[in-house]
Computed example of a mutant assay.
Amino acid sequence: MTQRIGSAASIRRVAALATAVLATTVLSAGCGTGDASSEGTGAAPSPSADPKAALLAAVPDEKDPAFRFSTVEGGEKFDGLVDPATQGLELSMSEKSQDPEFTMGMTFRVIEEDIWVRVKITGMPGLQDMMKLPKRWMLLDRTKLDDASEVPVYQNADPANTAAVIRTAETVEDRGNGTYGGFADLTANADIRASFSTVDVDALGDAAKKVPFTAVVGPDGNLASLTLDVPAAGKQKAMKLVAKYYDFGKAPKISAPTGAEVQKAPASAYEMLNG
């Protein structure tokens, strides 16, 4: 349930590459070796005469201050920051390898057209050096990426594409206390279909046209969460897709890395991202 902010494919490739690098090193050596549910305090919003319009008005836009967000879609989880004033986006994800055991984290930072990435490997000392991956921010050249869709871009202040989902509902019910409900049509258009990386919309059949959702607007008037209850279909289990927006005005502003904290991305970074 996202705009084009990338997918977990990149981080999976990173983890796979790290495992391969480790295996090669071991063979050649001959020996082995984010609660995001904060929704503010105060009085709940009053019931609206037009619930759908009221809910859409709560979705973040370019006038909002910096805020944090998180999304959960099946086994994919992202955390990040949005700073509309700078057209800035920061997106973090991680993947854990069980054999060998280590965790790889990757954070992208985007400001307008510029993009940086930072990699952090924990649980296995020396692996990051083996992969020749700096621990600093690395400035990327998008023209050197095989598939630019694998890295984030800033599109607008609604990274989870919540407004597009809400607009597909014929009607929205105001359930009181800032809670709204309705049914989303995941087949409405190509952009909606592209918002879901782990949901087989075709397998859902007619059920995809009426997926129940619940939205919560915080006392500050901002959308706090949107949850889609996707039913089971074929081999696909039922799942909840959750987007949360929080810390409006409390999150740090996004700025370009400077000085010793940044360098141009080396060839190893493009090898990582291009798989």
Rank of each mutant, 00 (worst) to 15 (best):
V172A: 10
T214I: 05
Y180G: 00
V217W: 03
Y180Q: 01
T214F: 09
N177T: 11
G205R: 13
A160R: 11
T227N: 11
K235C: 12
L228T: 11
D229C: 08
G205I: 12
D202L: 11
K210F: 06
L223N: 00
T227M: 07
P219K: 11
V217Y: 01
G178P: 07
A207N: 14
N222V: 00
F183R: 12
Y180L: 01
V199H: 00
D200H: 12
D158P: 01
Y245M: 04
K209Q: 12
K209I: 09
D185K: 08
Q155T: 15
A233C: 05
D220V: 06
K237V: 01
R175H: 02
D229Q: 15
S197H: 15
D191K: 15
F183C: 10
A232I: 01
Y246C: 05
G182C: 02
V199E: 06
A215C: 05
N222R: 14
P231R: 03
K244S: 08
G182L: 05
K235E: 15
A243Q: 04
T171E: 10
A194M: 05
L223G: 01
N161G: 11
N177W: 05
Q236A: 09
P219D: 00
T179V: 15
R193K: 15
A194H: 07
L241H: 09
D158L: 00
A232R: 07
K237A: 15
E173D: 11
A215K: 00
L186F: 09
V216D: 02
L204S: 10
T187G: 09
N189T: 05
P159V: 03
A208C: 10
K209E: 14
A243S: 13
G218K: 05
K237Q: 14
I166F: 05
A164N: 13
V172L: 06
G181R: 06
G234D: 02
A188V: 12
A238H: 04
T162P: 02
P219N: 08
I166V: 14
G249W: 01
Q155R: 15
A169C: 07
D185P: 07
R175W: 04
G181M: 06
T214D: 12
T227I: 07
T198L: 11
V230I: 13
D191I: 10
A224N: 12
A207Y: 09
N156G: 08
N161S: 13
Y246R: 14
T171D: 10
T168Q: 03
D185L: 02
A157G: 01
A160W: 02
A188K: 12
K235R: 15
A208K: 08
L228S: 10
L204E: 02
V201W: 04
Q236E: 10
D185M: 06
N177C: 05
P219G: 14
A184C: 06
S225T: 08
A207Q: 11
G178I: 03
N161T: 06
P212R: 09
A160K: 02
D229I: 08
T187Q: 14
N156I: 02
T187S: 14
A194C: 03
K244W: 01
V217L: 03
D174H: 03
D206F: 12
A232Q: 04
D185A: 04
K209Y: 12
A208I: 06
K237G: 13
E170W: 00
T198K: 14
N161H: 07
D185C: 05
K209W: 10
T171Q: 13
D158F: 00
K210V: 13
